[in-house]
């Protein structure tokens, strides 16, 4: 849109400076519009959470009466704290194990050469085309025999999130590919073993990708609904926030839990957004690096 205005102005014979100023003005208008659209739902959810005159949807943006009732109810009357702690623990555990799995896989595929490397990558490419959820039917059956579902679901879910996470090696492999090979060679000539090259040469250079992997692992349990709802199987003690709060919007509970859902949403979003924005720089590096590498 900005570009076409640019053209029209040129035909009218206005100066280049004035035309640029106008196109910048149009861009600002669009960006402000985007900001409003993007933040409106988040503003709405915060407003909703302060409503005390209703517990259902009333089609109003602003509360008629303000108060913290929803938050108080949330902590006093529901299992929300339990769900929140479950999810937080899952987030930390997933971050730790997933980082190890992903880094080990991507480092090996990027910087070591061995028999079967290509075959392994092809295998993972093919496996990636199956919907991951398909594996859950068997995993649920086995886990329920082992007692890793229902109230123990957080443990089972961490295993599910981490076990196959090596298949998501693409982004960090792209990063390792950009570190010059000569570094390894120099260290090898100096007598370092491959373990020492990994641990003393490459890892210190890979801070940003390690943080990116940790961030991805931490965010996974907060956003996952599909696997979690299957493993948890409607057992309140083992729920993650996503599964627990989804229930509140079901047709039977909607009218008594809607504003509380919004309050819970705010409580969930604050820590996750804080972590995310603090590490935003690394996230951006990961996304751009991964995309450019393909």
């Amino acid at each position: 849109m900005a570009n076409t205005t640019d053209n029209k102005l040129k035909r009218k014979g206005m100066g280049a400076k004035a035309s640029r100023r106008l196109s910048n003005f149009v861009i600002y208008v669009i960006l402000i519009l985007i900001t409003v659209i993007w933040l409106f739902p988040f503003f709405g959810i915060v407003m909703e959470s302060f409503k005390i005159d209703t517990q259902a949807m009333d089609g109003e943006l602003f509360p008629k009466q303000w108060g913290f009732d929803n938050y108080i109810r949330l902590f006093k009357e529901t299992d929300f704290i339990k769900w929140f702690i479950n999810t937080a623990i899952m987030g930390v555990a997933t971050a730790v194990f997933q980082t190890f799995f992903v880094l080990a896989m991507s480092y090996t595929l990027s910087r070591l050469r061995f028999k079967g490397r290509k075959a392994l990558m092809n295998l993972m490419l093919i496996l990636g085309m199956f919907p991951g959820f398909l594996t859950m039917i068997l995993i649920y059956k086995v886990f329920s025999d082992l007692g890793l579902t229902m109230q123990m679901a957080p443990v089972g879910l961490v295993i599910v999130y981490c076990a196959s996470s090596g298949m998501g090696y693409y982004v960090s492999k792209g990063f390792f590919d950009t570190i010059p090979k000569t570094l390894d060679e120099a260290a090898r000539v100096d007598g370092a073993t491959r373990w020492q090259v990994f641990y003393k040469v490459i890892m210190p250079l890979s801070g940003s990708i390690i943080i990116y992997t940790i961030l991805m692992g931490f965010m996974a349990p907060w956003g996952d609904f599909m696997m979690a709802s299957y493993i948890i199987h409607e057992n309140s003690a083992g729920m993650s926030v996503a599964v627990g709060m989804y229930e509140w919007l079901s047709k039977t509970m909607l009218n008594s839990h809607y504003t509380m859902f919004c309050a819970a949403g705010v409580v969930v979003a604050i820590p996750v957004v804080a972590v995310f924005l603090a590490l935003q720089k690394y996230y951006v590096e990961g996304v751009t690096g991964g995309a450019v590498k393909g």
Binding site: I45, M219, G223, V241, F261, V268, A269, Y283
Partner: peptide
């Protein structure tokens, strides 16, 4: 991206 999808999408 930062806000968990189930919160933003459900709302």
């Amino acid at each position: 991206i930062a806000i968990p999808q189930f919160v933003s999408l459900l709302y």
